[in-house]
Amino acid sequence: MKNILYILLFFIGSLSAQNEKIFDQANALYNEGKYAEAIDRYEVILNTDKHSAELYFNIANAHYKLNNIAPSVYYYEKALALKPKDKDIQGNLAFANNMRIDAIDNLPEVGLTRFVKKATNTLSFDGWAKLSIGLVVMFVLFYLLYYFTFGTGKKRFYFVTSTLSVVLALVALVFTFYSYSLAQKNNPAIIFAKESKVKSEPNLRSDEAFVLHEGTKVQVLDTVKSWKKIKLNDGKTGWIQGEDLKLLNNI
């Protein structure tokens, strides 16, 4: 059993070292202006299922240099998903989006929906889950202190604190489930076809609703055979051939 483990660790270490070597080779090609060749080397690493924000970022940069709109937007989005606060990724994604033909306005959210979504997005799903657990632990600790304390002042403090902890834990739990629900519904994709005709129904005989071009980001709502129901940021919906887009959530 130990021999198998040593072999596995050696294999993983060798693969990691090989990927680092290929990554350096790809970076050298990029610096020489050989962007297509650099992409080929970066994709060798992708094929080993070793993914990182740095890898996606460099692939996106190479595609951007070649004016490949859809792939550059796609890989910047992949990088941003792993490092959502990275300013370089955000800036380069903005430049890539400026190459797109489609200009789509965001549908404004108002009132309670806007507030709840903004509050939910302050933490990730994991963050809300950990906060919920932490508050439950606080509730148990302060309740035990309340139970075993006899001083009136301290007893009141522990009771109030334990009550507040359990209330906040319930609020955090609600945000946890809501964050999970948003994550489950979030199924973004990038249009890769130069021009794609969006239909009102999932068949070629239906009316054309509108036209999209490469690099546009959409949300996939449903799938019927080879068709994908999509939604734009401005609220428009329609059906598109699955081959015309590429899902961002796929590795």
Rank of each mutant, 00 (worst) to 15 (best):
Y6C: 05
Y6I: 11
L8R: 12
L8E: 13
F11L: 15
S14N: 11
S16C: 06
E20V: 00
E20M: 08
Q25D: 15
A26E: 00
A28H: 08
L29N: 02
A36Q: 14
E37H: 00
A38T: 02
N47S: 09
T48K: 09
F57P: 04
N58K: 05
N61M: 08
H63L: 04
H63N: 15
L66V: 00
N67G: 03
I69P: 07
P71W: 06
V73N: 04
E77N: 10
L82D: 08
K87C: 00
L93R: 04
N97I: 02
I104K: 04
P108S: 03
G111D: 03
L112I: 14
R114A: 15
K118L: 09
A119D: 01
N121H: 12
T122Q: 12
L123A: 01
F125M: 08
D126N: 13
I133G: 07
I133C: 07
V137Q: 06
F139N: 12
V140W: 05
Y143V: 00
Y147N: 12
T149A: 10
K154L: 14
K154S: 14
F159H: 11
V160R: 00
T163N: 07
A169E: 06
F175Y: 15
S179M: 05
S181K: 12
Q184F: 07
K185P: 03
N187W: 05
P188K: 01
A189P: 11
K194A: 12
K197F: 15
K199T: 06
S200N: 12
N203S: 10
F210P: 08
K217D: 04
V224F: 10
K229E: 15
L232D: 01
T237S: 13
I240F: 11
E243C: 01
L248H: 03
